[in-house]
Structures are given as structure tokens and as C-alpha cells.
Design a protein around this nucleic acid. Structure first.
Lengths: 219, 219
DNA sequence: AGGTGTATGTCGCAT
DNA sequence: ATGCGACGTACACCT
């Protein structure tokens, strides 16, 4: 990783045009070639950048970065304050846990936690318009499309509505009803869902995590 | 801006749990207090971070960053390779051109560029479910809701559909039809829009920028 | 504080 | 390559 601290002016031309007037900034060039320009405030994200792959042409007083989408990042360096290079070696992989995927797994194993009697037919059921999180059947044999979110908002209801519209046209899986599942569901999303005949159900992640395997039926 | 290059281990606990095994990385602490941990590859964005405002507690061999949402970023420093601090002074503001807001302004001045005879009623017409980009009227007096995107995709059509549904219920602005405007509209979005009776119209930003004022009518 | 929309969103996965 | 959904999305702006 190369870190250049410099007094510089920056222009970007591509998906939009952007101009950074002259000031002191950090220019970060990573091993994969991506370039980012950070100011000292505002946000953790850079003010300007160019992702990899790209072509970097360096001169004494400038860096010109281009990619194959005709985007251009041009850095004029008025004064170089520092310019250091570090070898970081290998990066061991980042480990993450606890996102929607996990919630989906837990509910796939325990669909009865969504609604009494639900049985899983297919996890990640791929339709032409996108994947349905869980396709289930209820005790009457009716199909149930389940959309799972960490936080339930309006766009999730829209998404499930599209799936229901699509699956409803498929005679093999029709009739079908929808259930919108999330840890927390916003009032608007709840209203929209119910106005469309979609059940909105909140589930507790910690409770689900406690269930290692399907609950044994008492009957 | 403070830049620490160090051999470190990182843990984040909050909206998810994440763990970064021991390796060499850059720790960036900006003037506003936000903290970001960058590896040397992958992307311009940090592997882990904590936005401002937060509370940073520093010890010889660790940084502990917490915020008021009970999120925790914990950096154990095994070996400090460098630790430097820079004063960047003021950051003059970033200037951007070509974002949706500009497209919206240009079309608000020249609604006839969307469709012959359109007249602007209100820019950013706020409804209870969100702002409609442009509310216009056509020569017959019918209301026209215009949704503007840089790139036209399905979610934009959904958005406009919600607005139309809502405005349609308002006797003062009913009947209403919709127009979906973008520089480029994806085929699926075009199909979805037209299946809902919404016109999908592509406009040229550079052409619009050339029109400083409304075109004079020839008639 | 909460809701909604934008972003040079980025990223990953399936088709 | 394109389509689609998730993201610790972050962020600005309006009610």
C-alpha cells in the first residue's frame, strides 16, 4: 500500500463529473491498483476514487488513472508532503456472521417458527424475476412465499408482491400467499403488506438461534 | 488525519459480528473521529470502520471505538509500524455535476423536452409516501407524475407506481398518468413501465444542458 | 427522531 | 455480461 500525502487538485470524469479544489489530502494506492483520495473529514469513504482494474500513469506532478469505461481520475500534485510504501503481506479472509443469510438458514430449518404447520419446499427458489427466500406449503397444501429481511421496509413488500404476482401465474404453485418476515417491521411496511393480503410477522433472532434443530412436535 | 500502520487483529460487534485475523493493515482516523481499517487489496472501501460520532479509547496496544448504538470496534495492535499525524486544514467543498438533481432541474425548466405540451405544476411534490420528482399537467389538463432517474431500473418504476396509486386517490390531482424519465432505461424497466401504462422516455443530458431556457415555441 | 430517496453506491451470486 | 438483491449500506433532506 502506497500512501501519498499531498497538496493536490483532483478531477473525475465518468459517471458524473467531479472537481476537488486544491487542498491537502491523502492519496491511497492499494496493491490491486485501486486509487482513493481521502480528505480529513466528512466520512469514512473517499471523496474520489477509481476502482481496479485501471491504468495508472504517474509523472512528477500528476497521477492519471483511467479504466476501460472511459472514466478518468486526474490528480495534480502541487506539493508532495510524504510518499511512503508498505508491504502488508497476505490478508487473511474477513469473517462475518449474523446477517440475513443466517436468519434465512434458521427459518429454513424451523419454518414452523414463521407460522404453525409450514413445511419448506425450497430455499432460494429461483424465478425469472429473482429468488424467493423460502417457498413453503401450509397444512392445506397451499403454497406460501416467504420474504425474509433483517429490517422490514416497504421495498421488501414490493419485492414479495412481485414474486407473488409471478408465482400466482404458475399453475404448479398456484394458489400462493405471502408472508413477510423480519426482526423488525416498520409500520408503513406492515400497513402496505396487510393491504395486499400479505402477513407481516416479526421473529426473534436470538430465540431462533437457540433452536438448533426443528422443534419436536408434541403431537 | 492520523495514519497508523500496524500488525493488528480486529473485531466488530454490532449490526453483525465480524472478525479480522491478525495481519498488517492501515488504520485511518479522521478529524471528525471516524475510524477505518484498510487492507491492501480488494477494494477502495475499508474492511471495517466506525462512523462518527463515536468514542475512542486508546491504550498502548489497542483502540476501542464505541458508539451510542452499542456497536463496538476493537483493534488489538500487536506491533506498530508507523503512526503519523497530518493537519490538512480546510477542505474546500466537492463539486459534482451530472447527478439526478441536475437532470431534475433541467427538466423542471424544460418539461416540454419530456413530452410536447407538458407544463410544470410543482417540482419535488411531497406526498405522504415520498416526493414526486415533477408534477406536471398536459394540454388536456390531466396531471402527469414524472419520476426521473439517472439510470432507469425496475425499482424506479415501482416508486412511480406507488406515487400514481397515491395521487390517483387525491381528487384534486386525479386523473393522473406517469412518465418514467432517465438517461438510459433498462429493457426490463421499460417493459414493466409500459405494462402499467407508464411511458418510459430517455433523455440526453448533454442536449438538456445546452438548453439554458425554455425553447421558444414555433407556433 | 423517523421516513424516503440517492449513490461514481459496492459487492456477490445466479442465469 | 447482465440481472437482481443485500449491505454494518452511508448520506442528505424533508416532515
Amino acid at each position: 500500500m502506497r500512501l501519498i500525502v499531498a497538496d493536490c487538485t483532483v478531477n473525475y470524469r465518468g459517471r458524473l463529473d467531479a472537481h476537488l479544489p486544491r487542498a491537502h489530502r491523502l492519496i491511497m494506492i492499494k496493491a490491486d491498483g485501486c486509487v482513493a483520495i481521502h480528505s480529513d473529514g466528512g466520512a469514512y469513504k473517499p471523496m474520489n476514487w477509481m476502482t481496479s482494474p485501471n491504468i495508472l500513469v504517474e509523472e512528477d506532478d500528476s497521477l492519471r488513472v483511467t479504466n476501460n469505461d472511459d472514466e478518468l481520475l486526474e490528480i495534480s500534485i502541487h506539493c508532495r508532503i510524504s510518499d511512503t510504501n508498505y508491504d502488508f503481506g497476505d490478508e487473511p479472509s474477513l469473517q462475518k456472521d449474523g446477517v440475513e443469510a443466517h436468519l434465512q438458514e434458521l427459518l429454513a430449518i424451523n419454518p414452523q417458527e414463521i407460522q404453525e404447520g409450514l413445511v419448506l419446499v425450497k430455499k432460494e427458489y429461483y424465478t425469472d424475476i429473482g429468488p424467493v427466500d423460502l417457498l413453503c406449503q401450509d397444512p392445506t397444501g397451499e403454497y406460501v412465499a416467504v420474504e425474509i429481511k433483517r429490517r422490514g421496509e416497504i421495498d421488501g413488500v414490493e419485492q414479495l408482491t412481485r414474486y407473488l404476482e409471478f408465482i400466482g401465474k404458475d399453475p404448479d404453485h398456484s394458489p400462493v400467499r405471502g408472508i413477510f418476515v423480519a426482526q423488525i417491521i416498520k409500520p408503513q411496511a406492515k400497513v402496505l403488506a396487510e393491504s395486499r393480503g400479505i402477513a407481516a410477522i416479526e421473529v426473534d433472532y436470538d430465540h431462533l438461534r437457540g433452536l438448533r434443530r426443528p422443534q419436536l412436535s408434541l403431537f
